[in-house]
Design a protein around this nucleic acid. Structure first.
Lengths: 248, 248
DNA sequence: CCGGTATAGTGGTATATACAACTATCGAAG
DNA sequence: CTTCGATAGTTGTATATACCACTATACCGG
C-alpha cells in the first residue's frame, strides 16, 4: 500500500488523490465499489479526516467518485473515460481513443491578429501573434484541419520549434512554462467545402464538425484560439455536464 | 447588502454563494474585479474564513471566479455564460439563448428497452420504459428531433403528463423527486436523412448535429437516455473543459 | 413476525488555529 | 534613483474538534 510522504513538497491531499486514482486505474477499486470512509482513510494514511475529505471531494468533482450521505463514497460507474472529456491536445486525444496521432504543418508564421482573434485572446487587433495551420491525421488518415492562433510574450520563438513531431500543449507547458488549464469551446455541424475536401480527402458536401476553442493558462489568461474542421463521420466529441445553480 | 441567516436550513456556505452569484448577475461585481478576501467575507457575513473559502471554491469550480495565490480572487472574464455549458433541458437551453422554446410530441408510449438503451440505462433489455418522441422548435421554427428513453419506478405515469407544455426536466424534479444532476454526452456531425428532413423542413443532405446523452439523478443513477438530431446550421453547442490529472 | 427504537456507522457543515507560500508595497540604504 | 529587505496582505494547506443529518443494523416488545 502506498504511503503519504509527510515532508513531500506535494500536498498530502494531492498525494492521497494520486494513491486513490491509481487504485481505480489498476482495478483494485472497481466501478460501484464502496471505498474506505473519510475517517478510515485519515487513520490509514496518518492525515486528518478533513484532508482526506478534500482529496475525495476533488475526485468527486472529477467524476471518479460519488457520495451518498449516511452511506459512503463509491467508485463511479459512468462509462465515458475521464481522458475523453477533459482538455487535451490532439495528440493526447487520439491516444485516448486508441489511435495513432499524426500531424502535417501546412504553415507556421507570425501574423497580425484580426478583430475576431484579438477579441478572443483579449489583445489588440494588429498585434503580431503566432499562427499555425495543421492537418491532423489519425492512424495515417486525414481527420481534421486546425488553425491555432497563439499569443504570449515570446511567442515568435515557436517559429523555431518542430511542431510536426512535438505536441504544442506539452511544449508550451514544459518549455515555456505556460500550462493550458481550461478551455471554452463551440461545436457546430456543417459541410465540408472544396479546400477542406482536398486536405481531408473526402467529397465536398461531406458532414463536418466545426469547433472554435479558446484555451486559458493561469490567471484566466487566454493564450490560444483554435478553429478546426473535423470529418464528421470520423470523430465523436465527448462531454460531461453538470446541473448548476444558474445566474437567474 | 444581503445577510446570512444563521438559523436557515440552507448551509451558510451556500447562502454566501448565492449572495456572491447575485452580485455578479446584477453587475455589482464586474468581470476582472477583485472581490473581498476570504477573511473579509468571513468578517462581513459573520462566518469563518474556511466557510467563506468553501463558498468561493465552489464558484471557482463553476467558472465564476479565479484565484491567484498571494493576490486575491477575481471575477472571471470568460465569455460563454454559465447557462450555456451546464446541463439543462431544451426549454432552459433555448431561453438561455434568447429564443422561444416550443415542443410537439410526436409520440409517447411505454416500450420494452432494446439492448443499446438498456445498457446505457443499466437496466435489463425488455424492461418497459417510457419513450418520448418530440419535435423541438426555436422561435416557431423546427430545430431538432429528440427521442428520450426514461426509466424509473413509476415512469408509466409520464403517459398522463402534458409533455408539450411542460418541461420534462422540471416535472421529473418537482413532481417525481428525481433531480437530473449530470450527464455524459456524445456529439457527432452527420447529414439529415429523408425522415428528419420532413420534420425539420430542410433539404436532405443538410448538415446535422447528432447527440446522444445519458442523464443521471442522485447516486449516479442513469434515468434518461436521449438521442437528438439538430439542424447543423441553427445550433451551436457550448462546452467548458478542464485539464485534469489523467488516469495513465 | 413485524414494527419501533437505539446505536453505530457514514457524509455534511462549521469553527478555530496555525503555518506555508506568494505577492505587493514601502522605506531605507547605497 | 534603484535595489533590497521587511512587513502586511493574500491564498493554500493542515489539523482538531464538534455537531448535524442520513443510513443501516440489531434488538426488544407487542
Amino acid at each position: 500500500m502506498s504511503t503519504i510522504v509527510r515532508k513531500s513538497p506535494l500536498p498530502r491531499y494531492y498525494q492521497l488523490k494520486e494513491i486513490m486514482r491509481e487504485k481505480i486505474r489498476s482495478g483494485e477499486w472497481k466501478p460501484g465499489d464502496l471505498i474506505p470512509s473519510e475517517r478510515e482513510l485519515g487513520e490509514q494514511y496518518g492525515i486528518s479526516r478533513m484532508t482526506a475529505r478534500q482529496a475525495i471531494t476533488e475526485l468527486v468533482n472529477e467524476g471518479l467518485f460519488y457520495r451518498e450521505q449516511g452511506k459512503g463514497t463509491f467508485v463511479s460507474r459512468r462509462k465515458i473515460t475521464q481522458q475523453l472529456i477533459h482538455l487535451t491536445g490532439f495528440t493526447e486525444d487520439m491516444k485516448a481513443r486508441g489511435q495513432q496521432p499524426g500531424t502535417r504543418v501546412l504553415s507556421a508564421e507570425m501574423r497580425p491578429a484580426d478583430e475576431a482573434v484579438a477579441e478572443r485572446l483579449r489583445i489588440k487587433p494588429g498585434l503580431q501573434i503566432f499562427r499555425l495551420h495543421r492537418l491532423r491525421l489519425a492512424d495515417g488518415e486525414p481527420l481534421a484541419i486546425e488553425v491555432s492562433h497563439i499569443s504570449f510574450i515570446g511567442c515568435e520563438k515557436l517559429l523555431e520549434e518542430d511542431l510536426e513531431h512535438n505536441s504544442l500543449y506539452r511544449l508550451l507547458e514544459t518549455k515555456y512554462g505556460l500550462p493550458l488549464l481550461e478551455a471554452d469551446q463551440e461545436l457546430e455541424a456543417g459541410l465540408i467545402g472544396s479546400e477542406e475536401a482536398q486536405y481531408l480527402k473526402v467529397p465536398v458536401g461531406s458532414p463536418a464538425l466545426f469547433t472554435r476553442r479558446v484555451t486559458y493558462t493561469e490567471r484566466n489568461q487566454p493564450i490560444e484560439y483554435a478553429s478546426s474542421v473535423y470529418c464528421g463521420n470520423k470523430y465523436v466529441f465527448y462531454t460531461h455536464m453538470k446541473r448548476e445553480q444558474l445566474l437567474s
